[in-house]
Amino acid sequence: MTLDATTRTAALALGDDALVLSHRLGEWAGHAPVLEEEVALANIALDLLGQARVLLSMVGDEDELAYLREERAFRNLQLVEQPNGDFAHTIARQLYFSTYQHLLYAELAAAEGPFAPLAAKAVKEVAYHRDHAEQWTLRLGDGTDESRERMRRACGALWRFTGEMFQPVAGLDVDGTALEAAWLASVTAVLDRATLPVPEGPRTGAWAAGAGRQGLHTESFGRMLAEMQHLHRSHPGASW
């Protein structure tokens, strides 16, 4: 399939989101608070990695794109590259992102664009990710005093990275304003049920809204890539 340049840019943005978040979830392997979460987090990571592979393959060679690009060439949201932190932090990131991804993919699946086939499959996976994040938000928010405090802090800390999701992306034919309104309504409803306040403050990212999509990333991202790419780069031309 030959795609035009703007569609490829959009595929890269969506593919990088899935690739980077999948990697972060992989860092949980062997560290999860209960065995059931080892299974769940790996499962979500595997779904995201599958999506990333389809999307990156729409652009070029998946491994070249994953392993041989520098930080400045990655187009993922700053939200997905944020370090795992504690379990609440990971859940807050999942809540924000899976809600966005579910709304986005539902829209892409309904349209007739180049992302419709991928979105039609992915939207089912993402519905499960979203449910997982919502259930844990409820458990942690409406659990113990400690868990509520941790969840409140996590939701607040990641809030500033959420505006970037609704900035226009060339080649992605979605109504950002409507998406944002739906996202806010959904997240607010979950936080209310979890007895958590909706965070206040700007939602403009580390430098400016849309920075990750332009290749401007937060500091921990370079280190994440160094780990991810090290072995591949150490053996140029090798196949695995």
Binding site: A29, E36, E38, V39, A42, L49, G50, E62, D63, M228
Partner: peptide, 25 residues
Amino acid sequence: ITRAPSLRRKAILFAKVQDEAGHGL
């Protein structure tokens, strides 16, 4: 998992480690 040298191998590792957690369960 975080250093697997290709995306295919990374997916295989994720699936394997997930299976092991399932076996433990």
